[in-house]
């Protein structure tokens, strides 16, 4: 199989308040081209650090990351700059749009860094709107747009440079389930039409259930990997089970709370049915 990203024995540690802390330890992953690859894990488990390393924002302490066969360890500063400017599109949980720019200005911002001409910028902007339509509110400032519109604009900003890789750090974390679903559908569409590899970090089991691969990271280590080849319900069952084992009792209460339709408490084992994107799942027992 052709892998887009190969991570081998990746470790990352840093000093905080005089103490050595390990963010990632001996992580090995292979991410195929054009796949939606999900990373789950509790807060502080190292998910975002992994994303930052893939994005060329941080450099690992040891191990290698190869993207399209090129080892990032061999990158110079210019290669890192090019990697962030051309290869990677970043989507954040809280959108991180510049509040002083309209949605359109925010979207074209990465192109201006590449010093493209006005015609080319307008052309790419028009192309981007074919994937994600924010044209109707393009002249609104972020504070005038809804959360969903802001996140769609943030996705436009990430894909306008036609990146080979999109890194999304909890992209649905600040959205309600309707907007979360819409955003995830957008990712699916981008994956299909642009053949872009999408690596996303999420706490949302519903979102994870739609990804091609789900890996769980705890304490900087990969503790499990799931493939979507399994039957949907079984796949979801494993996400819930593994997540609950990994995270403890409070697993993704917030995200499930937004989607389940059965009765009972949110965090416990009392409810019997839940609904994910219109599909009903039998609850699988206590978690």
């Amino acid at each position: 199989m052709q892998y887009h990203i190969m991570v081998n024995n990746l470790s990352m540690s840093y000093r905080s308040k005089g103490k050595e802390k390990t963010a990632l330890s001996d992580v090995t992953l292979n991410i195929p081209q054009g796949e939606i690859f999900c990373i789950m894990g509790s807060s502080g488990s190292g998910k975002s650090t992994l994303l930052k390393i893939l994005g060329g924002i941080e450099k690992p302490t040891s191990g290698t990351v190869c993207i399209n066969g090129a080892n990032m360890a061999d990158y110079g500063q210019q290669d890192y700059d090019r990697h962030r400017q051309m290869t990677v599109g970043y989507v954040f949980q809280d959108f991180n749009l510049l509040e002083g720019l309209t949605l359109k200005e925010n979207i074209i911002l990465p192109l201006t860094l590449q010093k493209l001409g006005e015609t080319e910028i307008q052309q790419k902007y028009a192309d981007t709107l074919r994937y994600v339509d924010v044209g109707y509110c393009e002249n609104n400032y972020p504070e005038q747009a809804s959360g969903g519109e802001q996140q769609r604009a943030a996705i436009c900003r990430a894909i306008i440079k036609s990146p080979k890789l999109i890194l999304a750090d909890e992209p649905t974390g600040s959205l309600d389930h309707v907007n979360a679903k819409a955003i995830f559908n957008t990712f699916m569409d981008i994956k299909e039409r642009m053949q872009t590899t999408i690596v996303l970090v999420t706490h949302d089991a519903a979102v994870a259930s739609y990804c091609d691969t789900v890996v769980f990271i705890e304490n900087g280590r990969v503790c499990d990997t799931l493939k979507k080849g399994e039957a949907a319900q079984a796949f979801y069952k494993r996400i819930v089970t593994v997540s609950s084992k990994a995270r403890g009792y409070g697993f993704s209460c917030r995200s499930i709370a937004g989607v389940y339709s059965g009765g009972g408490s949110v965090c416990g084992s009392l409810f019997h049915k839940c609904s994910l994107f219109g599909e009903s799942y039998e609850w699988l027992g206590n978690i």
């Binding site: 994005g55 924002i57 500063q77 700059d81 962030r84 400017q85 051309m86 970043y90 954040f92 991180n96 510049l98 911002l109 990465p110 860094l113 590449q114 900003r157 990430a158 440079k161």
Partner: peptide
């Protein structure tokens, strides 16, 4: 935080 995000979306140190 703003500058850190700009770096993530492609700004270079020089920029």
């Amino acid at each position: 935080r703003k500058y850190s995000n700009l770096f993530s979306i492609g700004y270079t140190y020089a920029q």
